[in-house]
Amino acid sequence: MGRTTDGGPPVRHGEHLCRTYADESQWARQVGDLLREGIALGQQVLYYAHSRTPLEVTARVRADGRDLGAAVEREQVRVHSAADSYLRRLPLDPDLMIAGLRDSCRLALAQGWSGLRVIGEMDWAAQQAPGADRLLEYELRLDTEVFADLPVTGICLYTTQAATRSPAALAAATHHDLKNAGLPGNDTKLTARPLRPGGRMRLLGSADWDSRTELAAVLAAVCRLPLPVVHVDLSGVDFIDTAATAALARATAVLAGQDRRLVLHHAPPSLRTVAQMFPDECRDLEMTA
């Protein structure tokens, strides 16, 4: 299982991390630490609240210390409602969210801050919000489309309960600070994670009947990635069954229909065996060594 993600080492520019909390005191402690890190680095910190109102968050932040209160006063720390900002227009649109994030970073830089730190309460993702199924796509795109060239630090905040619920669980599992198995208590059988440098994905786990829902979500996200060639590393997948092979063949066909390609790296022996047994239907599967 993955290590506990509460706390952890300081967060640097370009990092995209996941933090979980079990109760309000743990939330307050983590948020206080994350805010102070950002303030010390000269970042502007945007906090998107969902489980609490912006007023409640602001009051808690002020109460946590004068330094935080002062940061709020000089608008280095700004608290918004997720529902009134990036969730205002649903269903969730990763294109708009990414564009908004980039704009926010440019604005922060223009105002003299060293970068942007975004902390978001993500529990809405476990509440079947319209378009929440596209959160995974959003998370997978951030590395390439935001963190690669802008001084943005992203921290997704989940309650431990929400982080284990679909579709939030898949989105939470994309974060680099989690070990392969994902979050403690998360029984997700298959996860996806962006590989650095960007433009490649790594799948982790097994692709079988138990993980068919996860695979469908992952492949839907992968097919939406705005890349001419989508590289998927399967070295972390120990088994791919026939149904999953069929899903990969379908994804390949979808991308081919858009003049794009899906390239599978390090395919497990089970995938190669199935492909040999269905040569006609797997002819277009691109598998490298």
Partner: peptide, 16 residues
Amino acid sequence: GDLVLAVSEATANSLA
């Protein structure tokens, strides 16, 4: 590997 694949197909059929 063939045995594991066959067992996987059979046991997945049990679930489905």
